[in-house]
C-alpha cells in the first residue's frame, strides 16, 4: 500500500471515530430510556416503555411542553420576520455602517448566554416587568435571529434580484412584489429558518432558566427534575423525545435548505 493510501485510510477512520463520539452521548439517552432499571447502567436489563407511559399522566410535564410550544412557535415566527429584514439588508443593500449593524445583530452567537441572560434580567426586573413566557420569548428572539439570518442570507443570495425589479417594472406594487415574487422564492429558506429557530428555542436552557418565572419550559422542567434521582428514567424518556423531535425538525430544515439550493441552480 502506498503511504498516501494509508494516511487516507487513517484519516477516514479518524473521521468515523470522531463522528461516532459526537453521536454516542446523544444516542445513549434513548437507549437507557427503554431500559427496565431505575438507574442508567450497563448491562441493559430488559426492554420497557413504562418510563414513556408514566410521562403520559404527568400534568406538570404537559404544562412545560405547552409552554415550550408557545415559546418556540413565537420565537420562530418573530425571529424569522426579523431575520428576513436583516438578511435582505445584508444581501440587497450596500451602505456605510452595515458591518457594524450586522455585528450587533449577530453578537448573541458568540456572547456567553449567561451575560445575555443576566443583562436582560436586570433590565426587565428594573422596569418592573413580571417574568413570564413573554420574557423567555424576548430572550430567545435574541439568540434565534442570528441563526435565522444565516439561513436566510443564503436564501436571498440564491435568487436573482432582477426578478424583483422585473416585477416592479411590470407594475406590481412593493407589497405585491414581496408577496408574489420575494416570499415564494424564499419559501424553502423561510421554512428552514422556522424549523431551525424552533429547535434552538426548544432546546435552550440558560435564558429560559433565568427569564421564565413560574412557568417552566421543557429544559427548565428537566433541570428541576434532576434533583430527584428517582425521576431520572422519566427525564431520560422525555429527553429522548426531545432529541428525536429536534433531529426530525433539523432534518426537515436541511431538506428545505437543499430545495432552496436547487432553486438557485435554476438561475439563468
Amino acid at each position: 500500500m502506498r503511504p498516501g493510501a494509508l494516511s487516507r485510510r487513517l484519516l477516514a477512520a479518524y473521521v468515523i471515530v470522531y463522528v461516532a463520539i459526537l453521536y454516542f452521548p446523544v444516542l445513549l439517552l434513548p437507549v437507557f430510556s427503554f431500559n427496565d432499571s431505575a438507574t442508567p447502567k450497563l448491562p441493559l436489563v430488559g426492554f420497557t416503555t413504562k418510563w414513556y407511559a408514566s410521562l403520559a399522566g404527568n400534568e406538570a410535564m404537559h404544562g412545560a411542553a405547552w409552554n415550550s410550544l408557545i415559546v418556540g412557535v413565537s420565537a420562530a415566527l418573530l425571529s424569522t420576520v426579523l431575520g428576513i429584514c436583516a438578511a435582505r439588508a445584508m444581501t440587497r443593500h450596500r451602505f456605510r455602517g452595515m458591518a457594524a449593524a450586522s455585528s450587533v445583530i449577530m453578537a448573541p452567537l458568540i456572547l456567553p448566554e449567561i451575560i445575555i441572560a443576566i443583562s436582560l434580567l436586570v433590565v426587565l426586573l428594573g422596569l418592573g416587568v413580571q417574568l413570564s413566557l413573554l420574557t423567555v420569548i424576548l430572550g430567545h428572539l435574541l439568540i434565534c435571529v442570528p441563526y435565522s439570518v444565516t439561513v436566510l442570507v443564503s436564501g436571498f443570495e440564491g435568487f436573482d434580484p432582477s426578478m424583483e425589479e422585473a416585477s416592479r417594472d411590470l407594475g406590481e406594487t412593493g407589497f405585491g412584489t414581496l408577496r408574489r415574487v420575494t416570499l415564494p422564492m424564499l419559501a424553502p429558506s423561510i421554512v428552514s429558518s422556522l424549523l431551525v429557530t424552533f429547535t434552538i428555542s426548544l432546546d435552550e436552557f440558560i435564558l429560559a432558566f433565568f427569564l421564565s418565572g413560574t412557568e417552566p419550559t421543557l429544559p427548565v422542567y428537566i433541570w428541576g427534575q434532576l434533583r430527584f434521582a428517582a425521576k431520572l428514567p422519566n427525564v431520560l424518556a422525555l429527553g429522548s423525545i426531545l432529541i428525536a423531535a429536534s433531529l426530525l425538525m433539523l432534518t426537515a430544515a436541511e431538506l428545505f435548505r437543499r430545495r432552496a439550493e436547487r432553486k438557485m441552480e435554476l438561475r439563468p
Binding site: 420576520v81 426579523l82 431575520g83 429584514c85 436583516a86 435582505r88 439588508a89 445584508m90 440587497r92 443593500h93 450596500r94 451602505f95 455602517g97 452595515m98 449593524a101 450586522s102 450587533v104 445583530i105 453578537a107 448573541p108 456572547l111 451575560i115 445575555i116 443583562s119 436582560l120 436586570v122 433590565v123 424576548l138 430572550g139 428572539l141 435574541l142 435571529v145 439570518v149
Partner: peptide, 21 residues
C-alpha cells in the same frame, strides 16, 4: 433603504442586548 430594512432587527438588538449590557 438599507438602514430602513435592517432597522427592525437592529433596534431589537440595541434595545434588548446592547442597552441591557
Amino acid at each position: 433603504k438599507g438602514w430602513v430594512t435592517i432597522s427592525p432587527p437592529l433596534i431589537y438588538a440595541l434595545l434588548l442586548l446592547i442597552g441591557p449590557i
